[in-house]
Computed example of a mutant assay.
Amino acid sequence: MASFEARTVAEPGRVTVILSGDCDLTARDRLTAVLLDAVDRAGTVFVDVAAVGFLDSTGVHALVVAHHAARGRAGRLHVVNATGPVATVLRLTGLDALLRAPATERRHV
């Protein structure tokens, strides 16, 4: 079982949350807390999932909760660098389209 890690990088007006490991039930509370903290800190949040190996429904739920929190503050949350099974989950749930970063922003993450 891969462990879960999250780190944040703050820049003016935005925060990037870099995730690695498994975003599953064991990581649910920490994942949600990290994402909500990022939303509280910046109007735009990028969630880099390049190093995430597994994303289950609890990980999806955390992303949706953070998305709604960001929208409630007139902000945005974007998921970037999804590949493999994580990209498949995002596509199947429709989150790939909902949380897609604008093309001009994808290059900067």
Rank of each mutant, 00 (worst) to 15 (best):
L95I: 04
L19T: 00
L36G: 01
P85K: 06
R41P: 00
R107G: 14
A66T: 09
D96V: 05
A38R: 03
R30G: 14
G21Y: 03
V45D: 00
A10M: 13
L55C: 09
L63C: 14
V47N: 01
A87E: 07
H67V: 04
V17C: 02
T83F: 03
L95W: 08
G43T: 01
L77D: 11
D48N: 01
E11T: 12
L92Y: 05
R73Y: 05
V34Y: 03
E105K: 09
G13Q: 12
N81P: 02
A103W: 07
L99W: 12
L36C: 13
A87G: 01
L31E: 11
T16V: 13
V52F: 03
E105I: 04
L77K: 13
L98N: 01
A66P: 13
V60I: 12
G84D: 14
A42P: 03
G13M: 10
A62R: 11
R71Q: 08
R41H: 00
L35C: 03
V49P: 10
M1I: 10
L36N: 02
A103R: 11
R107N: 07
H61K: 12
G94Y: 05
A10D: 15
V65R: 04
D24S: 02
S3A: 15
G72H: 06
L25I: 06
A42D: 00
F54P: 12
T8D: 14
A38S: 08
A27T: 08
V60S: 06
A62P: 01
A82M: 08
M1G: 15
T93W: 07
C23R: 01
L92K: 05
R14E: 10
D96T: 05
H78R: 02
H68Q: 11
T26N: 11
T93G: 11
E105G: 02
L98S: 03
V52T: 08
V64M: 00
T93M: 10
V86C: 05
V86E: 04
A38Y: 00
V60M: 08
S20M: 05
A101M: 06
L55P: 05
L63R: 12
A42R: 01
V45P: 07
D56E: 04
G94N: 04
A50W: 00
V47Q: 00
L90C: 08
D37L: 06
A27M: 10
F54N: 10
D29L: 13
L35P: 07
D22L: 01
H61P: 02
V60P: 03
A66C: 09
